[in-house]
Amino acid sequence: MRDEHQLRAKLRTLADGAATGLAVLATVLVVAPLVAIFVYLVYKGSVSLNWAFFTHNPVPVGEVGGGMANAIVGSAILLGVGSLIGIPIGIAGGIFLAEFGRGTKLANAIRFTADVLNGVPSIVMGIAVYSLVVVPQGHFSAFSGGVALGIMMIPTVCRTTEEMLLMVPHAVREAALALGVPNWRSVLSITVRTASAGIITGCMLAFARVAGETAPLIFTAFGNVGWSEKLSEPIAALPLQIYVYALSPYDEWHRLAWAGALVLIVLIVLAVSLVRYVTSRGVLKGAS
């Protein structure tokens, strides 16, 4: 009896140790390759990056040099159009969820749909926008690419806006209402303004997410080897260019792909760190 008891106690301690070991091992197994990816990326990117990358257009195969100036400008234009569509609609949707629809069935349904929409593959967004915009227009265009990115931003912006607005203390809303301020004014100038730091970082996060999207651009923005700023024409984009160059057989193009990846990553890391900094510091300083 006593022996059995001791044996069981020993087994339990053993199981405890084994579980701890496995959890640590899992963490190492996950973190090590992830860090490896990151370090490798930064290394390859930084040796590949040079000034020409930002100032030159791609050169034909076989020539050395060139850059992705057209893709950087293209990405900026696509993201600009996307933000113009996605950010206002997303913020307005978030305002509805937090300020008007709180607790209603409609708001719950919208919140749920937004979360589900967030999980719809970007490639599906791409072909949907292709048939909605590209087919009626008759050709690929920067505009259609922007629409695809904008639609993808809406659910993210909407949900973060809602979450940030919910953090604004009720007392602040009451103070505004008690001054006889019209509701729309109180929402925009008081509630949204109080949560603005959080909302802006939420928008940046959505921006960073779509900045790296490739799949929805393949049949909308399409890509362009030359310089284009027109919304009605196919346009180059950084992630598209990385995709094409990565699968090419030329070392020079591989180099450019790594450089492009580094530029994208730096943009994204900046956005994510900023979001983390702002949310950890408390979005609403001083508001209790």
Binding site: A175, I190, G286
Partner: peptide
């Protein structure tokens, strides 16, 4: 109206 807890607009 003045409320129980001070509620200035924080920003």
């Amino acid at each position: 109206m003045v409320f129980q807890r001070p509620n200035p607009f924080p920003t």
